[in-house]
Design a protein around this nucleic acid. Structure first.
Lengths: 114, 114
DNA sequence: AAGGAATATTCCTGTCAAGGAATATATTTG
DNA sequence: CAAATATATTCCTTGACAGGAATATTCCTT
């Protein structure tokens, strides 16, 4: 029951691959913000901020909460959990090199001591 | 010494955001393969396979090993480690329970006081 | 109701990246 | 050396997408 093929949605990655959107995500990591605050903090024009937030929202990376005139955006956990799960399936890849590095470092130490 | 700002290279993400390249990565997870094998298994034309592999290589996602006529491609661990580290900084976001619990407690307090 | 603030949307334009086709560059084999 | 195999590169065309500017929409305030 653990052989589930985890497929990572590439559109999630492309949403995050745009630098301004990545900056938005980094910013929202500290907590929810309104569109205006995001635009200010990142030096974006309001329409561009709204557009990027729309993309992030469409990919489930952020969610909106209406507060009167304003829209408060915050990160959603799901895509990050999905990416984490996906990366877990590469653990053997990541550890393989650790072993090699480890072996290399041991070799170096042997030389130093020899 | 642990307050290092982890910035994830967005170009790594854009390299992985292309579906064919993602498929290549998924395929190479099982082990190294030549260009021809990759093209065959994924139904790609050889030039496209080479092009995608070049992009992956330029971003350090794969590495090449020349074997006579052939080029053997394999995954490199570094970008996956980098992504994992980056995602670690979102661990608090992924603890969805905190948000829900927090919202629940606020609601409770409002009811109590209202 | 009117004006203003916050946000979303539309239209336009330029750029970039992916695929197709052809070709170039090794490298092996006969 | 010639032919064949494996891979890389170039040129071209097309589609997607990001930014700019203007405008629409919604909500608050007075």
């Amino acid at each position: 029951m653990s052989g589930k093929r985890l497929e990572l949605d590439t559109t999630t990655l492309s949403a995050l691959a745009e630098p301004n959107r990545m900056h938005i995500v980094e910013l929202l990591r500290e907590g929810p913000l309104t569109v205006g605050e995001i635009a200010d903090r990142l030096g974006l024009r309001q329409p561009q901020a709204s557009k990027h937030l729309k993309v992030l929202s469409e990919h489930g990376i952020v969610e909106v909460q209406a507060d009167a005139n304003r829209r408060i955006y915050r990160l959603r956990p799901e895509p990050f959990q999905a990416m984490t799960s996906w990366l877990d399936s590469f653990r053997h890849i990541m550890e393989e090199r650790f072993d090699k590095l480890d072996a290399y470092l041991r070799e170096l130490q042997n030389k130093e001591q020899g």
